[in-house]
């Protein structure tokens, strides 16, 4: 994470040199610093940091799109005269080990399509989720595993 700190410092340095701390300048400085850091660390093995930044951006993008999709789907259910509901509480085994990754996963699940994280088992192995519409429990678990959980695993535990 010290590379992130260095990158932020470079962004501030850029803004100081251009003499304007406008958000656009800071963002441009960050991008420039990212490029410079990537160039000077390219000699050896690529540090984790350069894989993490695109992963974070990808995750954020997918999450925001899902948040909007979840709300539109929920609005459709609420507005239909006969609400199509098949609620269920499903236990999903977790492959994530790090606590912050689990917290992020359960928070994101609450905010995205039809699901609500109810609780995590005390031994951190199982996530209990409430879902508005359950077709097939196995399919549901598989979808979760291939979506957010895989991304978070790459981000936190690669």
């Amino acid at each position: 994470m010290s590379l992130l700190l260095l990158n932020i410092l470079l962004a501030i340095a850029w803004a100081a040199l251009t003499g304007s701390f406008e958000p656009v300048d800071l963002l441009f400085g960050f991008g420039l610093g990212y490029l410079v850091l990537w160039l000077i660390t390219r000699m050896g093995k690529t540090p984790k940091y350069f894989r993490q930044i695109p992963l974070v951006l990808g995750l954020l993008g997918v999450f925001l799109v899902d948040l909007l999709r979840a709300n539109i789907r929920m609005a459709g259910i609420i507005l239909s005269p006969h609400m199509k509901l098949r609620p269920a509480v499903v236990a999903v085994p977790l492959i994530l080990k790090s606590e912050s990754a689990i917290i992020l996963l359960s928070n994101m699940m609450t905010l995205t399509p039809g699901t609500l994280s109810l609780d995590i088992s005390t031994d951190r192995n199982t996530l209990f989720m409430h879902t508005v519409y359950l077709d097939d429990p196995e399919e549901f678990k598989r979808q979760l595993l291939t979506g957010y959980e895989r991304r978070l695993k790459e981000l936190f535990e690669a």
């Binding site: 929920m74 259910i77 609420i78 507005l79 509901l85 609450t110 699901t115 609500l116």
Partner: peptide
């Protein structure tokens, strides 16, 4: 719509999934 969902949903857990997302 989240408020309408609170009225229409049949149980607490469904009401929460309507309000937690839409509120945010």
């Amino acid at each position: 719509l989240a408020g309408l969902g609170m009225l229409r949903m049949p149980d607490l857990f469904l009401r929460m999934s309507s309000s937690a997302k839409a509120g945010t």
